[in-house]
């Protein structure tokens, strides 16, 4: 035991050292200055704190901030859509009443291709710039939310989110490719009868009936669609409905 020259004795110092290793309290600093054994204990404790801090600093996933901001933008958009849908129903009801009166007919909903491109260019447009691959587990989770159990997942998916696309329930993904990103949307339980190509706002797309729904691909280079279609064909054929 060292000589007690400060207000704090060795026991008090060691206790404080385990509670506040970085303490700058005057009596704590004074004791360390006067007691070599406690000064050594403090040096060891600070080295331990440094190692502890480094060990706890688990690196966050890449694109964590971007994925949170996208989720927030998507949520806002959904809320707006719900609100607009409520207002839309009122408008539609009024139009229907009017139509009965004057013999008009309500026009058909927006075509699938236009709805998909409009969705892609909406709040989730920043997803087109994402390149870091998402975990296969996240893709499986998104499909599971839509009632599809994937046993395998294609590589190189940089974005995945469950989204409403117009009236359709979809899993919205981005697959970066050499000639630009391809947006891939799988519309569950909405299986068209034929494949179709479409174009809108400078983008080209293709919809393909597949397994439990329809796969929609959108990009600037249609030559990239065939391989993606093949990958998803084998993936979805091996999947099951849950």
């Amino acid at each position: 035991m060292s000589k007690k020259r400060s207000y704090m004795n060795c026991l008090e110092f060691r206790r404080e050292l385990n509670i506040h290793p970085h303490s700058s309290a005057a009596e704590f600093v004074a004791h360390a200055r006067e007691c070599p054994r406690c000064a050594q204990a403090q040096a060891d404790a600070l080295a331990f704190e440094s190692t502890l801090g480094r060990a706890l600093a688990i690196p966050p996933p890449p694109n964590l901030a971007e994925s949170i901001l996208l989720a927030q933008a998507t949520q806002q958009r959904r809320e707006r859509q719900r609100w607009a849908s409520g207002a839309g129903w009122l408008t539609l009801a009024a139009a229907a009443v009017l139509a009965v009166g004057v013999g008009w007919r309500v026009t058909r909903a927006q075509p699938l291709g236009d709805a998909a491109i409009a969705h892609m260019l909406g709040a989730e447009a920043p997803a087109l710039a994402m390149t870091a691959p998402v975990a296969a587990g996240d893709v499986r989770k998104a499909f599971a939310k839509r009632g599809v159990d994937l046993t395998q997942v294609p590589a190189d998916i940089s974005y995945v989110q469950c989204c409403p696309v117009g009236k359709f329930k979809s899993v919205h993904m981005v697959m970066p490719r050499a000639n630009g990103p391809v947006t891939v949307m799988y519309l569950v339980d909405d299986k068209g009868s034929t494949r179709a190509d479409f174009a809108h706002a400078g983008w080209i797309g293709r919809s393909v009936p597949m397994a439990h729904g329809t796969l929609v691909m959108i990009g600037h280079d249609a030559s990239q669609f065939a391989q993606i279609e093949q990958e998803w064909q084998s993936t979805l054929q091996a999947s099951t409905r849950i």
Partner: peptide, 21 residues
């Protein structure tokens, strides 16, 4: 807030629950 603190919050959440996802 997201850009400044999501990393710190993730580390805290990781040690709270023990699973990255």
């Amino acid at each position: 807030l997201v850009r400044g603190l999501s990393g710190d919050l993730y580390r805290y959440a990781y040690w709270l629950c023990g699973e990255d996802a």
